[in-house]
């Protein structure tokens, strides 16, 4: 089996590990680093539950090989709450707005919204933009209204809210 040694930064920590080249990033995070917050749903790029940030851009971790992330930086849902367990403002808003039920899609949804928070001007973030970004994350139980409410409250300026 073809293997490579990769150096990768995950949630601010450096790792140097040997990986089979066929291993995707989602499996690498879950099975080697035991970061099981990143969920694997469809494993072919449709559901969005494995969404992570690669060099600060949201990507499907089931559609990229761990070996392709050599020398790069990854952030997962585990990077959001602080060491004492204090939730990120987005997570806190999700909790208050009942934006999750089973929670399976939540890690991917949160990382998609973190990318939006870091890249869009708060004065431009509105419901349409949030819904467009979330179109790449399937939720099959809660529906999207709570997520949209939580995202609007956290990411947008008051005049853009509902």
């Amino acid at each position: 089996m073809d293997e490579r040694i990769i150096t990768i930064e995950v949630n601010g920590k450096q790792y140097r590990l040997k990986v089979p080249v066929r291993e995707n990033l989602a499996d690498f995070l879950r099975h080697r680093l035991h970061l099981t917050g990143t969920h694997t749903g469809c494993e072919h790029g449709v559901c969005g539950s494995c969404t992570i940030l690669l060099d600060s851009r949201s990507v499907r971790s089931c559609l990229i090989l761990a070996v392709q992330c050599d020398g790069r930086s990854v952030r997962t849902v585990e990077s959001l709450a602080d060491a004492a367990g204090k939730l990120d403002p987005l997570q806190d808003a999700f909790s208050r707005h009942h934006a999750l039920q089973c929670g399976f899609c939540t890690p991917g949804v949160l990382m998609t919204l973190v990318e939006l928070r870091e890249n869009a001007d708060p004065s431009e973030i509105n419901e349409d933009m949030i819904r467009e970004k979330l179109s790449g994350n399937l939720c099959r139980c809660t529906g999207y209204q709570g997520m949209v409410d939580a995202a609007l409250e956290t990411l947008s300026r008051p005049d853009k809210r509902l």
Binding site: G45, S58, R60, I64, E115, E132, K133, G136
Partner: peptide, 9 residues
């Protein structure tokens, strides 16, 4: 085309 997450790659 697809979604933000797929267009990024």
């Amino acid at each position: 085309i697809g979604h933000q997450q797929t267009r990024n790659r």
